[in-house]
Design a protein around this nucleic acid. Structure first.
Lengths: 191, 191
DNA sequence: GTCTATAGGGTGATAGAC
DNA sequence: GTCTATCACCCTATAGAC
């Protein structure tokens, strides 16, 4: 394995881990080099533009891909069932998916236009996939888009508040109850 | 530690602004001192424990207070009306309220248990106030709590995705449509 | 490609004069 | 309370040997 792995990729992986864990500013190039097991100088050979180029590389490979979560729910037979399945799968996601998204929020102000556009493209693809999935229950494309946006706001809002900010440790409201209420409501709103 | 001098408050204000704007790590003590118009040494006289104590002071005065938003909606005559009013007021909030919350998410991992508890207390007060406000439409305290949690997830999710991550600039879904859909749905779910 | 060595500057923090 | 002067350390980045 050591022979076949690309050093550049190793560096990006290490940087990604440290950036997400401690933040870009709190992570030094030295720290990254230590984790990879090379010197700083070697690192600057691979990334001529230094730390910022490293950030760029990390951003483009750290945008979480969640399309598969939508796919897994496409067998649902009712809108209510779809929302429940989707919500439960999203909440059950590997916690480091959320860590990555938290980090995106954190670094967003320092991203370039291109980097932001990359994130937007990926997120819109996700949201559109949801819209397509729910359109068969609604029949109307515009309504489906609004529905998809509503569902994503809900799910990410829960993630940020209850998981990132650890509200779950002090609130007795359970995610299942929120999901049930939302699913029932949104289904009822379309009848 | 006698009373709070005026200077001390000036320092906290300057630090708060810089921390929220650029992040804790990217802000130097020197920078803060420059903005206030004193030297670093003077700053260390007021905050014996240095930069970390400064962060502590900033955290405790930066947790956004949103209770008044709930109060302003308490005249609503139906649940649907309440949600619409509340959602619109939240979206219309001064953008720097959201900046502060974004910053809380950013710095959360480095907060102490006490600092997190302070945030949790304040947020739960907010959420409970919503629960009390909607209880008259539901009659059931548990259902009101779930409803309050759902509404906050929705509103903060919109804030993070569409405002912090600027999804509004690339999505054609408008906040009003999301709010309307949610309000209609949640009202319908209780009938 | 990777190393050693080092430049050049910023950082948090302190001592002691006023 | 505020200053000047200074510390020891860490940072990003580069030059040149191997």
């Amino acid at each position: 394995m050591p022979e076949r792995t690309n050093r550049r990729d190793n560096i990006v992986d290490a940087a990604a881990h440290l950036f997400v864990q401690n933040g870009y500013d709190a992570t030094s190039v030295r720290q990254i080099a230590d984790v990879v097991g090379v010197t700083e100088a070697a690192l600057y050979y691979h990334f001529k533009d230094g730390k910022r180029e490293l950030l760029e590389a990390v951003i483009s490979c750290q945008i979480p891909d969640l399309l598969h979560v939508v796919e897994e729910c496409e067998g649902a037979e009712t809108l209510q069932d779809f929302i429940v399945q989707f919500g439960q799968r999203m909440v059950a996601l590997n916690p480091n998916r959320l860590e990555k998204l938290r980090w995106m929020v954190m670094e967003f102000p320092r991203m370039t236009g291109d980097e932001r556009a990359m994130f937007h493209r990926k997120h819109l693809a996700f949201q559109n996939r949801i819209a397509v999935a729910v359109e068969r229950f609604l029949g109307d494309a515009t309504a489906a888009k609004t529905m998809a946006a509503t569902i994503t706001c809900m799910v990410f809002g829960y993630g940020f508040l209850f998981l990132c900010l650890d509200l779950q440790s002090v609130s007795d409201v359970k995610s299942d109850n929120i999901i049930q209420l939302l699913a029932q409501g949104l289904a009822a709103a379309t009848r």
